[in-house]
Design a protein around this nucleic acid. Sequence first.
DNA 1: CGTCCTCGAGTTCC
DNA 2: CTCGAGGACG
Length: 746
Amino acid sequence: MVRACRPAASWRQSCSAADCRFQVAAESQAIIRARQLRGLIESHNHAYYALDSPIISDAEYDVLFRELQLLEASHPELRSVDSPTQRVGGAASTAFGPVHHLAPMLSLNNAFDAAEVEAFDRRCLDALSVQKVTYIDYACEPKFDGLAISLRYENGEFVQGATRGDGFTGENVTANLRTIKNIPLRLSGEGFPSVLEVRGEVLMLRRDFERLNEGQRSKGEKEFANPRNAAAGSLRQLDPQITAHRALRFFAYGTGELKIDSSAATTDDTGGGSGDTGNLQSTALRLRSGLAVQSQDATPAPTGGSRASFHSEMMHRLESWGLPVAAEREVVRGASGLLAYYQRIGAARAQLPYDIDGVVYKVNRITDQDLIGFVSRAPRFAIAHKFPAEEAQTTVLSIDVQVGRTGAITPVARLAPVFVGGVTVTNATLHNEDEVRRKDVRVGDTVIVRRAGDVIPEIVSSLPEMRNSGVDSAGVFVLPEKCPACGSQIAREEGESIARCTGGLFCPAQRKQALLHFASRRAMDIEGLGEKLVDQLVDAAVVKTPADIYKLGIVGLASLERMADKSATNLLQAIERSKQTTLAKFIYALGIRNVGETTAKDLARHFGQLDLLLQADVALLQMIPDVGPVVAASIASFFSEPHNLEVVAQLRAAGVSWADVTPAATADSPIAGKIFVLTGTLPVLSRDQAKAMIEALGGKVAGSVSKKTDYVVAGTEAGSKLEKALALGLKVLDEEAFRQLLGAEL
DNA sequence: CGTCCTCGAGTTCC
DNA sequence: CTCGAGGACG
């Protein structure tokens, strides 16, 4: 990193309002010069970071930068948030606030081979069959191995940046993103929407990663395992100064929320724009073939106030506004075009300056995207075609078994440490007995390991031909008959693939897992009650049931290892805090078999109070949507157990409580059981608020429109869902009508 | 009865 | 993330 920004000098309070009146002429000159400098510096940033082709030397750049710093230092009123000197941002924050994504940041479905890509093309064609299309054009781009980020521009100014988070709520990392030099603080060019949310990926170039690790090495600090981790670690720094010294880059791949407002479409930027975007392609490697279709990218200049018709056109516009986009974009035709693109990028992969883990295909025509629509969390009009995961060889040191919360016995292979897919892997799950058989994995074997989905280590196969004759039968995995934790019988139900310890809560392993589940974030959320602590508490027989957690005192904790006063106090506070919860979380925390987060919410909503749930019989439970015989039986059996009822009673006695859900309203509300679909942006309510209101009254919110949908609530910029709703003749409400429908019940 | 889709549960590493 | 299985629907 040659071009490190240094922190802006502190501002001198140089002139009072009265003094300034006599300096108008000088001031206006300073204003003009400052604006000029900003434009120059940003355009050089763009040339350097986005186009990779600097126009001036680093020394010349430094001169400009320092001049602007000095100018701003002597004229504090010139300082503006979009000045390049402001990239090294304000004070270190202690935490990242939540940011709600109005348009959720979805994930993509994956394809791993040609057949899946062809199936994807066929699905899209089917979905568009009404249009009688015979082929589809796709926008293709590399899939960066980085962190998904959303940038929000209001009237061209970068105002907020957030991580993807769970797709609905991310973290506010604006200060850190401001330090990334190829993210424009102000959009250049014309015609950008008044609100523009840019979606893209933050990553570290391989060469910058190497340099960072060299630095870490020479300082004797820990090296990063791979560029992705380095980027993630850098972005999550609480101190933006540190982020500023890590050479991160951003690449846009799409948009989120868009508010088109033609009145806000101009900028007074003085030539600081990205200018000639056309030659970007020439500096990067060119990937073209006879299959590539160019016409849709050709829209010359973005026009203000209108929506792009093609994904490729949108990307082109982003580029013209100064946002970095991948150079290796193409529009291709049909499945054969997709596969040819995959081949080309695959061949170029090693030469690319960044890590990619595949390519992404999107139906190019936006109206077609809308027609094809979404399946729950992923668009159906786009797919990620992943490169085969990196594989490595290692040996199996042993095969242990783990006992889960439900008693599930899972064999785990302990491996000789091996570096694969960017991390060192030492464990890999073998899922169940059959899996071990199928893959014929034995202790001492040489096996091929990869990270499935680039996360979870997986044994692909064993290499029996490399087996020493000695290991042959000795290393064969045999499922133990008795639970390693409690000695109870292990049993495998007919037709089930999973063997379970029959010890129930008598088994310390199950008890530990149950307690960890109870304390987990989505359940009672007791911070600090982790694995180590639970181990100690259970082993010392201090805690046997979740209710015992609430009987802990400072004295009892003090006797434990690594539990000084401070941490003990913190834990007790966390326990105290957790007493105030919701019925849904409480039900989930109990760990009833087959009752996860979603079912727990359903139950809480339908019964409103715990006592009604406790008394419900199997027939009543099955009245609830998504509760069938199996789930109903699990619930009924859990509450028929005197021991469980005792724990529930103790928890309530200890002060665990929740605000009562209005039970009556849900029962006879006319929207009870009705299915709503929300689309577009509502004028007042946020998506979450609307969802909460519907759910509070016993309605359900679905992700996509189908015949089952009862109501579609449409706001502005409603897309395919609205079209489909109209096509199906469903009831469509605007926010006003929606409020009336619900308001009558409140 | 077969075919979606969604949910639950288990898992790894930093 | 991935698997299996539960549940809804045609």
